[in-house]
Simulated scan of single mutants.
Amino acid sequence: MPKINGNEIRPGNVLEHNGGLWAAVKVSHVKPGKGGAFAQVELKNLRNGSKLNERFRSADKVERVRLEQKDQQFLYESDGMLTFMDSESFEQIELPADVLGDRRPFLQDGMTVQIEYYETEALNVTLPEKVTCTIAETEPAVKGQTAANSFKPAVLDNGVRIMVPPFVGQEEQVVVSTETMEYVERA
């Protein structure tokens, strides 16, 4: 594995540190008046989700880990476990449903997701950037209410609450960002 200097750590990098695999969430470079500069890095453990704040000086060497990314298809959920299938080898793997956190409702049957592997261990699931959902319930549009920045609450067919523009009605298809969990456009 390649070793990098402490000041070369970027958000999204995966590091081997203290015997675990950690993803850099936030990185800020600090230059105090006294002493050498360092990188203040917020790390998230990829195996158990715990967080850690660590300082790395430019002289510190850390191991950067490359994760292999594979596209896999979601099959079903049972007993809190999600089952995915590799579209090339047809191998199936199971991951706990909480690996997706609050983005879990956006996972749809047959959806192709990206799973990151470290050697043979599956660590992370990345959903597509945007998904199409149906509006289950929302208030009807009020005539004349066409202000540019006005939004109204809506509930999607998967139970997630979002804000939508006033012209979007019930039973309409909308595109939602899985990162920000916000309305993007009409489908």
Rank of each mutant, 00 (worst) to 15 (best):
V41P: 01
E42H: 14
E42Q: 15
N45Q: 12
R55C: 06
R55S: 06
D60R: 06
K61A: 10
L67N: 04
E68H: 03
E68F: 02
Q69K: 15
L75A: 00
E77R: 09
M81H: 03
L82D: 01
T83G: 01
F84P: 01
D86Y: 04
D86M: 03
L95Y: 10
A97G: 00
A97V: 08
G101F: 09
R103I: 06
R103E: 09
R104C: 05
P105F: 09
L107F: 11
L107S: 08
Q108E: 12
D109T: 08
D109W: 02
M111A: 10
I115W: 03
Y117L: 13
Y117G: 06
Y118V: 06
E121I: 06
N124L: 14
V125A: 07
L127P: 07
P128R: 08
E129G: 05
E129P: 02
E129N: 06
K130Q: 09
K130E: 11
V131F: 02
V131P: 01
V131E: 02
T132I: 15
A136M: 13
A136S: 13
A136F: 14
E137C: 13
V142E: 10
K143L: 14
K143S: 12
Q145A: 13
A148H: 14
N149F: 08
K152N: 02
P153H: 04
P153I: 02
A154S: 09
L156I: 07
D157C: 11
N158M: 08
G159Q: 08
V160E: 04
V160R: 06
M163Y: 11
P165M: 08
F167Y: 10
G169D: 10
G169N: 11
G169L: 10
Q170S: 11
Q170A: 12
Q173Y: 05
V175I: 08
T178N: 09
